[in-house]
Simulated scan of single mutants.
Amino acid sequence: MNPIRIGILGYGNLGRGVELACAANPDTQLVGVFTRRDPATVHPYGENVAVWSADELAAHTGDIDVLVLAGGSATDLPEQTPAAAALYNVVDSFDTHANIPEHFAAVDAAAREAGHVAVISVGWDPGMFSVSRVYAGAIMPNGADYTFWGRGVSQGHSDAIRRIPGVVDARQYTVPVPAALEAVRSGANPDLTTRQKHTRECFVVAADGADTAAIEEAIVTMPNYFADYDTTVTFVSQEELDRDHAGIPHGGSVIRTGTTGAAGENTHVIEYSLKLDSNPEFTGSVLVACARACARMAAAGETGCRTIFDIAPALLSPLTPEVLRATML
């Protein structure tokens, strides 16, 4: 069987993570990378990977089975994914939770009109955590959901800071509040506000002469990203950022606590957790698994937008249904 031909739009940390995931999956092949930079300056790991200008997106539809979009959710994906879905089967990791319904509608319209399949908002949250929330809620209806992220670097939030005028570079850490996490794990079912569950730490490199007070204000008041959290902003040099914040770790837990029994006398805690050395490499791995599912759905004649909720586990796996039944059940 021929491998699934993958293309990547965007070749930053996430794009490189997607390339590494393609190399780890024998049934996928990265054939090309689209970039907004000068293609001559972009050097993929693979020797036979083409590098094309993003302006050439429409010129390679015959070369690619699934295009993985590796841009940011703040400004890239809301425009890129619907446009790309008109040309390709696509997968993205759009992670602005509040705007997913709007993003889904735009991508679905473009994909249906073109006869393509689009899978949006896959990664670990939204993505793997989302599946855990749905499974746990279906199993234990009398309960409550809690999601804790970090401590780790959020690529999307860091990207959002870097888009602020005057910012050269930035890293943003999401940090669970320990007391809140322990209260949930105890089965106490606490009623927690967004602000009580997490804090956000931002390390920012400002351009020479930039108005740091204005940058800080833009960060702490940014809707959907920082406005609902206690946020600290620390300005550092590029050297400090490179030395102390070079890695991109992340992780977290999604927990459902609830009860069963005639009087709710039995308490249960369901927890799914991740500890990631590399957020982009793990997210890239999820994107490639979903690209496999996307290609399979397209081959079956499906069209339109999908989320992780619409994808059967067997479609994500490289294993055959027979092997899955024999080894995974």
Score class of each variant (00 low, 15 high):
residue 303 T to G: 09
residue 238 Q to V: 09
residue 274 L to C: 02
residue 230 D to A: 13
residue 233 V to E: 02
residue 289 A to N: 01
residue 230 D to C: 06
residue 249 P to F: 04
residue 272 Y to V: 10
residue 255 I to T: 12
residue 262 A to D: 12
residue 246 A to P: 05
residue 275 K to A: 11
residue 254 V to C: 00
residue 264 G to L: 11
residue 267 T to N: 14
residue 272 Y to S: 06
residue 268 H to Y: 15
residue 257 T to P: 12
residue 280 P to G: 07
residue 259 T to H: 12
residue 296 R to E: 08
residue 297 M to C: 03
residue 237 S to F: 09
residue 288 V to L: 08
residue 303 T to H: 14
residue 265 E to K: 05
residue 233 V to G: 02
residue 257 T to S: 14
residue 233 V to W: 10
residue 287 L to R: 11
residue 240 E to Y: 04
residue 308 I to K: 00
residue 251 G to S: 11
residue 245 H to E: 08
residue 231 T to A: 05
residue 265 E to L: 05
residue 238 Q to H: 11
residue 252 G to L: 01
residue 274 L to N: 00
residue 267 T to E: 14
residue 296 R to Q: 06
residue 281 E to I: 07
residue 264 G to K: 11
residue 255 I to L: 00
residue 260 T to E: 15
residue 303 T to K: 14
residue 236 V to E: 01
residue 272 Y to P: 00
residue 251 G to I: 12
residue 300 A to Q: 12
residue 293 A to I: 09
residue 301 G to V: 05
residue 286 V to E: 00
residue 284 G to H: 09
residue 234 T to Y: 04
residue 304 G to F: 02
residue 288 V to S: 02
residue 303 T to Q: 15
residue 297 M to P: 02
residue 303 T to R: 15
residue 259 T to S: 12
residue 231 T to R: 04
residue 302 E to N: 06
residue 307 T to C: 01
residue 263 A to C: 01
residue 291 A to W: 13
residue 262 A to C: 05
residue 285 S to K: 02
residue 231 T to S: 06
residue 269 V to C: 11
residue 280 P to A: 09
residue 237 S to C: 07
residue 304 G to K: 04
residue 259 T to C: 10
residue 309 F to W: 11
residue 249 P to Q: 02
residue 287 L to K: 07
residue 241 L to D: 02
residue 234 T to G: 02
residue 300 A to H: 07
residue 233 V to Y: 09
residue 297 M to G: 04
residue 272 Y to R: 05
residue 272 Y to T: 14
residue 252 G to V: 04
residue 253 S to D: 15
residue 276 L to P: 03
residue 282 F to P: 00
residue 273 S to W: 07
residue 235 F to Y: 10
residue 267 T to A: 15
residue 266 N to M: 10
residue 233 V to I: 10
residue 240 E to F: 06
residue 234 T to K: 12
residue 271 E to V: 06
residue 256 R to S: 13
residue 247 G to S: 00
residue 239 E to M: 06
residue 272 Y to K: 05
residue 285 S to M: 08
